[in-house]
Amino acid sequence: MKQSFFTIVSFLFIVFTASEVNSQSYTKQELRDSIAKLPYFSIHKDNYFITGVPTNKTINKNTANAKYQISFKQILTRSRLPLDTYLFMTYTQRSFWNIYKESFPFSDINFNPSIALGKAFFDKNDKLKGIANLSFEHESNGRDSIFSRSWNRLSLEYTTNVAKNTIGRFKVWVPFGYKEGNPDLLEYTGLGQINLSHIIKPDKFFFDVRVRKGLNFDLKGSIRTRVYFNPFDNNISNQYLMLEWFLGQAEGMLNYKQSQSMIRIGYVIRTNEFRWLGGK
């Protein structure tokens, strides 16, 4: 995992310095007008169906699989709440599907609902600097007995531009209600994550990496890298092909201790939840 980490860092340096996009930041009023036009129901995280194979074990019908995710967001109020915040709820479901085995069984299904407050931050010139979300989240696999996995967390996430054409999402959480069924979960998920998304070519080519580090001084954690490519001339639906490499532990709740190195490819409807930070 250490060698792979340095490979990814080197690639990130090349990608993050290889493109250029000119844009202007939203003002406070422009952002409010844009939010007022949003549909109440929209995509939250990426919605995708991808399939692939492991790189750290023999490839066969038991190790190859598919993964898909459904994620949406419902705005509960557009009227400004105290501290100029707005309230919304989200739901994300991520499933691991053994489509190459007989009867096509699901090996794990993870459910992640949340309710959150969002707030935008501006500089002294009323230009958008970042967006913060304070969330109460629950995540579980919906099973019982020895197969039950669940945890709750109070999460704080801040999204902002960290470099030219690069959006960073920094998330920390205070976990609770996890010690029955998965008491050592934090050794694999840690107390937060960093997500960097870089525009290589607008509406055509993106690169994304997410890093988690477990609590202990070892290599437990995960690195998830994604490359998005739009092969279509007209992309009004935000549709892409996605290549994903997941390396580490806790990709799913059930076998969170198991080390994985999976490369998958497939179709994604990419989220544009923080498109305002890309400018006008």
Rank of each mutant, 00 (worst) to 15 (best):
L134T: 11
P54Y: 11
I131E: 04
P39Q: 00
S95C: 13
G118C: 06
Q239N: 14
P105G: 07
F232D: 01
D46F: 07
T63D: 04
F106Q: 06
I99F: 09
E244N: 11
K257H: 13
A163S: 11
R270I: 01
S259K: 11
G181D: 06
P39L: 00
Y86Q: 12
S148K: 11
N182G: 13
W151R: 13
G52V: 01
Y240N: 05
L87E: 01
S10T: 11
S150R: 04
A64W: 04
D46E: 04
L254P: 02
V172P: 02
Q69Y: 02
K201Q: 12
P39N: 09
S155T: 12
K45P: 07
D184I: 07
V268R: 02
K101M: 13
Y267N: 05
N272F: 02
L154P: 00
K213T: 10
F49V: 12
S23T: 00
N110L: 04
S42N: 06
R94C: 05
L191N: 14
G130C: 00
L215P: 00
G279I: 00
R212H: 10
S10W: 02
F104H: 08
A120H: 09
I8E: 09
K257T: 14
N110D: 15
S25F: 08
I115Q: 01
I223V: 14
R94S: 13
L247D: 13
G168P: 01
F106S: 02
G214I: 06
R264V: 11
T92I: 05
Y256M: 09
Y240F: 15
N110V: 08
K67G: 02
N62Y: 14
L215V: 10
S237C: 08
